[in-house]
Simulated assay, not measured.
Amino acid sequence: MHTIWKGAISFGLVNIPINLFAATENKDISFRSIHKECNSPIKYQKVCPVCEREVQNDEIIKGYEYEPGKFVVINNEELKEIAPESNRKIEIIDFVKLDEIDPIYFDKSYFLGPQENGNKSYLLLKQAMKDTGKIGLAKITIRSKESLAIVRVFDKGLLLETIYFPEEVRSIDQVPGLDSEIQLDEKELTMATQLIEQLTTSFEPEKYSNDYRTALMELIESKVTGEEFTVPKEAPKTNVVDLMAALQASIDQTKPLQNSETKITKQKKTLNVRKKKTV
């Protein structure tokens, strides 16, 4: 695993030398834009609409649009002056309970591994946080960007998760339609609760997969190998308008499903893609 950052965890006067590793990876399939006529990849050029010519990288500066069409220019020297100090430290400011932080704040995850001379202090911090049930709230600067982060116990090691600052999380008050007062029907609420209970299971991440990505890869492979690609027709869906009827139909449909594996198998049927070789 590639080390993307080296530094130290600090809390109080304790410093723990660590290495930072990406804990997740993007599995999205990307496409190139190509010319329909000859299948050549399209190049994107930076063109000034006023000068009507391509602009080179050394001619480009940074500007902030404070009003439509009006910019204030910011040069690199000014940015360097106010940039956060890259001190290579994950400075733990406070220790808090994990359930006090709503998941909406979570951003990216990184594994933290001890450097050669930091094993003992690393394990000490890990065990102390495990015993107290607390996580560390910290600040970290990666690639000149200052982030708020948490350090927590994960499996047999430590995990760092960058989190959004409060001003980066939008208020739910901006969402329209949430203040409308609707009287809920007790029978409908009971059935909705029953449906949730029937669909409740233990979270086993290995049972879930990206069905669209799998189908897309099969489509790509069939194109490369020259095989025929077919998608089975879906069964027609029943358009149930009445809420009570929809709840009852959902409950009846989920009754035979006794475990999450059966449920997920059923969900995948609509996206299941089969290939067959051309005869």
Rank of each mutant, 00 (worst) to 15 (best):
I29N: 08
S86H: 08
K62N: 08
V55M: 10
E59A: 04
N26E: 12
Y64L: 06
Q56D: 14
N76Q: 15
P84W: 00
F95I: 06
T24L: 02
K97I: 06
V72Y: 02
K80L: 07
N19L: 09
Y66E: 04
E77Q: 10
C48Y: 00
K27E: 14
E91W: 00
Q56A: 14
G63D: 05
I104A: 10
K70T: 01
I42F: 06
P103C: 05
K46A: 10
V50D: 13
S30G: 03
I42D: 05
S30L: 08
F71T: 01
E85G: 07
E67T: 09
F106E: 06
E37S: 13
K62H: 06
E25A: 14
E77N: 11
L20T: 01
Y44D: 07
Q56K: 14
E91N: 12
V47N: 05
R88P: 00
H35N: 15
I18E: 06
N57Y: 10
S86W: 02
P17D: 09
D102V: 01
D58T: 07
C48Q: 06
D99Q: 11
E85H: 09
K97P: 04
N87G: 02
E37R: 11
K27S: 13
P103I: 00
V55Y: 03
L79N: 00
N57V: 13
E91R: 10
